[in-house]
């Protein structure tokens, strides 16, 4: 048998051996048997030198082609062995819980406040602030609330036990006075903050609670502007289908004054046509005179509402005291 005729059968034999490889040792032995220094195929190459010169190129070429095929088969066999060994000993349980970092949440009152602030800021309002320990002047006198007014009843107001006898502000309206005394119109402010009433804590009362106050003063401000703004803000807060109703009411520092009711899917679910949500009105000329604005030149409106009330309505929270307990199970829900 000539050398040329030996190539094909030997190649077929070697390929079969490589195909049959199942682990590292069988891979090593198959490789050694055919392609190693002592291997059969290597042996063929060695015999090449014994051939007559003119036959060498053809045989050499055939051997090289076959060798290329065998090397490819060797790589396949090697990959198979390596991959087989690297398989997982344990399987990932893709259904097991993932590893989480602890994440914190913002207080629901903060979230509602931020929503309110954001919608007012779209209208160009700036956030303002003032002290919580107030004097009677800013909280009552300047707001056209005379001494004999029921709102000034000591039953409703906390007084601080110091010689000056300041009080804890009963509404954020006191900031109106401070801002208007400091700056000339136009004014566009919103005041979120804590207020205090002497109410014993129960499901709907807490001596500490939060309000937002809005104040807008400019030339030619109208009740229509008030309604437009209130509608805009409440639709932002309570959904685009929220209906708003204004009812004439009385506040000493606004004239005319209104209470604001709203209606949406929430109120209907609660079985009510309307729910009261805020108070408002056109700033009383006496208030303007107190801060040195000319009521003939300037007009404006103010409104205020409780943040807890909005949050309770929005999330369906039944007890106001939950806001102040800071139970993680409660806080994590928002």
């Amino acid at each position: 048998m000539s050398l040329l005729d030996e190539i094909e059968p030997l190649k077929a034999e070697a390929l079969a051996a490589l195909m049959a490889v199942s682990d590292q040792s069988s891979l090593d032995s198959a490789k050694g048997a055919y392609l190693g220094p002592q291997g059969k195929f290597t042996g063929l190459l060695k015999q090449l030198g014994t051939l007559p010169k003119e036959e060498r190129p053809a045989v050499g070429k055939a051997i090289n082609v076959a060798k290329g095929e065998l090397e490819k088969a060797l790589k396949v066999a090697r990959d198979k062995v390596e991959l087989g060994g690297a398989g997982p000993d344990q399987l990932v349980d893709f259904t097991a819980p993932g590893r989480c970092r602890r994440s914190g949440r913002l207080h629901p009152l903060t979230q509602v406040t931020e929503d309110i602030v954001r919608s007012f800021r779209k209208l160009g309002f700036a956030v303002a602030d003032g002290p919580e320990v107030e004097d009677e002047y800013h909280c009552f006198d300047a707001l056209n609330t005379p001494v004999d007014h029921p709102a000034r009843d000591a039953q409703d107001t906390f007084y601080v036990d110091t010689p000056e006898r300041p009080l804890l502000r009963t509404h954020t309206s006191s900031v109106q006075i401070r801002v208007m005394q400091e700056q000339q119109p136009p004014v566009r402010i919103i005041v979120p903050g804590r207020v205090y009433r002497r109410d014993t804590a129960d499901a709907t009362h807490n001596p500490t609670f939060h309000q937002v106050e809005g104040l807008y003063v400019d030339r030619g401000v109208t009740v229509g502007d008030l309604k437009g703004t209130v509608e805009f803000v409440f639709r932002e807060l309570m959904g685009p289908k929220t209906q708003i109703r204004f009812r004439p009411h009385y506040f000493s520092y606004t004239e005319p004054s209104f209470e604001i009711d709203f209606a949406n899917a929430l109120t209907r679910k609660m079985g009510k046509d309307w729910l009261e949500i805020a108070g408002c009105g056109m700033v009383h000329p006496a208030v303007f005179e107190e801060v040195g604005y000319d009521p003939e030149e300037w007009s404006g409106w103010a409104f205020g509402f409780g943040i807890e009330r909005i949050a309770m309505l929005r999330y369906g929270i039944h007890d106001i005291r939950l806001f102040y307990e800071n139970d993680m199970r409660f806080l994590k829900q928002f």
Partner: peptide, 25 residues
């Protein structure tokens, strides 16, 4: 200041802390 406080709350929440509101009294 309101904006700084808002950011501060977010930074703290990102550290895994939840926000509390305590009683003033």
């Amino acid at each position: 200041i309101h904006d700084v406080l808002s950011c501060l709350r977010q930074w703290l929440a990102a550290q895994g802390l939840s926000e509390a509101q305590g009683q003033t009294l």
